[in-house]
Design a protein around this nucleic acid. Structure first.
Ligand SMILES: [Mn+2]
Ligand SMILES: [Mn+2]
Ligand SMILES: [Mn+2]
Ligand SMILES: [Mn+2]
Lengths: 219, 219
DNA sequence: ATTAAATTTTAGATAAGACTAAAATATTGT
DNA sequence: ACAATATTTTAGTCTTATCTAAAATTTAAT
């Protein structure tokens, strides 16, 4: 029931990779994500397999079992709730909280999370717009598109970021874009995918890369 | 600057033992406190010594260096601030917070503690009446006596507990005694040190052992 | 002052988690 | 099909933090 810091981090990494990988998650992919070596991954994956947290067949990558997925989701839940705490209560900026939440997510206490959740008003999303799983691991799925998929004259509200590195978040601040900001596509350049958008009342220019990392809810 | 969970726990243990031990803190004492073996203590103490956190001479026990003491105090600061958070904000009961704070005290982030401190209103004492060191490790010392040292007709306010096991704290609840409770000694039995005391408006009987674990501020 | 007992340290072993180098397997290109 | 390349696993080593058993040292008792 209680796993080590390392085991928890592996589960989380595999969970995130599983969402994008069609097939089993590759050893190399995990190694890259965790900034460790493939041989270390193999070792850990064997251990997780013995604990019935992942399905593992040599040379064929891993997938999470139900138990593994559930465990990963409780860690993600903790991570995101702590991020809400840091931003809403301690007034951290949204680009400063991930690192600290990486530590806080490993605190073991169900009671703590139950109370923290209530204290925060049972939020559905974290400061980056990512959904917070409930205690049973259910995630409230919402309609959202990448800004890059909108066409000229379409608009919506920014509801999340795909990338959430401090660098990107700070850039968004400079552009006056944050969760809840209204955005409308005024023009889209075919050549490089760059856009001219309306942010609130002001016009702004953004690159394709930026547009591909912003989620919006269309209206 | 950043120490392992184990190193931090050793420093904390040595700090607490140093306050009661006249001479250097004994290997055995540390082992008992940490629920580990003396041989493990010797190993760790050597490492702490190399890092200039303790003064260590073979067979003569250890003392904290200034650096070691400062480090221990920041961990204690974190522990107690988190306890305040858990009780004041998350409405935990005072007998439920120590275990969780034992984990939270190892989260590394100065900014986090600075903000948490401010969020909590820069408290001077934790939920058990223990003083919270400031960022430089200074502790606000206060006048306080053990209830067992009071004589008949003397009274005061409960400002802390010496023991803070859940069992004792729950017993105090049953006796309607908590931090801030007014207590007056109505009678003291010479034979066994037991007392009849006035708690608020009600009379109560307590053993010597209980009286020896309650701090009061006399008026 | 010796001896007995308690404390502390050393030596050697173990487990978790990580690494390097080499071997095994899978995938790709021609 | 088969060689070249990429991926994955194995074998062996390292570090941190433990432990047990044995040796060294200190403390207490006669
Ligand atoms: Mn995060
Ligand atoms: Mn987030
Ligand atoms: Mn405590
Ligand atoms: Mn306390």
């Amino acid at each position: 029931m209680k796993y080590s810091l390392s085991e928890e981090n592996y589960l989380k990494a595999i969970y995130h990779l599983e969402k994008i990988a069609a097939t089993g998650v590759a050893t190399n992919a995990i190694a890259e994500q965790m900034e460790t070596k493939p041989s270390s991954v193999t070792d850990m994956v064997k251990k997780l397999s013995e604990k019935k947290l992942v399905n593992y067949i040599k040379y064929q990558g891993v997938t999470l079992t139900e138990k593994g997925k559930k465990t990963a989701l409780t860690i993600i839940r903790k991570h995101r709730l702590w991020e809400v705490f840091l931003v809403d209560k301690l007034k951290f900026h949204w680009d400063q909280v991930h690192e600290i939440a990486e530590q806080l997510e490993h605190i073991h206490s169900e009671e703590l999370i139950t109370r923290l959740d209530k204290f925060l008003g049972e939020p559905d999303f974290d400061p980056h717009g990512d959904p917070i799983p409930d205690k049973d691991g259910n995630i409230k799925r919402t309609e959202k598109k990448l800004l890059s998929d909108l066409n000229k004259n379409q608009g919506g509200v920014c509801v999340g970021v795909k990338e959430s590195s401090p660098e990107f978040l700070q850039y968004l601040d400079k552009k006056k874009i944050t969760i809840g900001t209204k955005i409308k596509v005024l023009g889209k350049e075919f050549f490089d995918g760059s856009m001219v958008i309306l942010v609130g009342k002001d016009q702004s220019f953004i690159s394709k890369k930026t547009a591909e990392n912003l989620y919006v809810q269309t209206n």
